[in-house]
Design a protein around this nucleic acid. Structure first.
Lengths: 156, 156
DNA sequence: ATCAGTGCAAACGATTTGCACCTCG
DNA sequence: CGAGGTGCAAATCGTTTGCACTGAT
């Protein structure tokens, strides 16, 4: 992967007009694009070369990620039970993960285990939940599975 | 709900031997039990009366929640995309939520939309994903739906 | 009595913000 | 050129920890 000046081409994700395509934004975009899993601001920063880290500020990374999120370029998430926020580029289709409780490996699921035919689900009202009316229009969803991967299962 | 001395009875969730059943733990347990959704340490603290807050330390809440978690009494989670950790009492079955993208209301789902017959799913290997072998043992899972609630749908 | 549990305050890590300077468009 | 973007440092927020004290068993 050579570092050609034009290595970072126009983003696959629609780049919103009005945002400046600066070199730091290009770089953050590139790192997110190369990543196979969601990254925290610190992780993005860590993936830069020492030389870059010196000239870029970590706070800029936070602001860039926030800007990307506001413009729907990335999705903000967290791993269950972990306090740090991670960002994932919005690629064509969304991906879900199986997370190993032992080695913490994150394995992307082949298929989304959720097959909602319609765009509606039954939700409980909180107090009056007898009527299972379709009263919530689902736009997107997130799933995480927790358990043990093949390797860790073998270990025990 | 009066404040009888014995109001807080032996916890529905098994209380592990070796842990002291102190008044602060009783109170935290009670609050978690009354809650309809996972709470952060700060939220637990906020649900105490001013008088209690003065005599209890917030750090104690953190330690109690950590102790509860180590002893499987509660589950540590996060709302997707939010940096704060929340704790939920381990009741019989877990609950998932539908989150309104407009008013941010969280509505518990009546039923888990995921009906995995077995305890295994097909996962991609990352690189060699052709074989869809059952190589991940699912222990638990987390789901969040995003969309618009009845009220907010009406508003637009 | 003993040791886990607690309060307090300081330490910490992650994230945010104010302000002056810089740079893309 | 000018608004938006950035660097730097200080501020904030959520969470953890060291230490001396207290209370449940």
């Amino acid at each position: 992967m050579k570092k050609d000046k034009e290595q970072v081409k126009a983003p696959a994700v629609e780049y919103p007009a009005g945002l400046k395509w600066t070199k730091q934004r290009k770089r953050v975009y590139q790192i997110l694009n190369d990543a196979t899993e969601p990254l925290s601001a610190a992780q993005v920063y860590a993936r830069m070369e020492p030389a870059e880290q010196e000239q870029y500020a970590i706070s800029t990374i936070y602001r860039i990620l926030a800007a990307f999120e506001e413009n729907q370029m990335v999705e903000k998430t967290t791993w269950m039970g972990e306090g740090t926020v991670v960002y994932e580029l919005r690629r064509s289709g969304h991906v879900h993960y199986a997370v190993c409780l032992d080695c913490h490996k994150r394995i992307p699921l082949e298929h989304c285990p959720l097959h909602m035919g319609g765009a509606h689900v039954h939700v409980a009202d909180g107090k009056h939940s007898e009527l299972g009316t379709e009263d919530f229009e689902v736009v997107s969803h997130k799933i995480e599975l927790y358990g043990y991967c093949k390797e860790c299962k073998a270990k025990h």
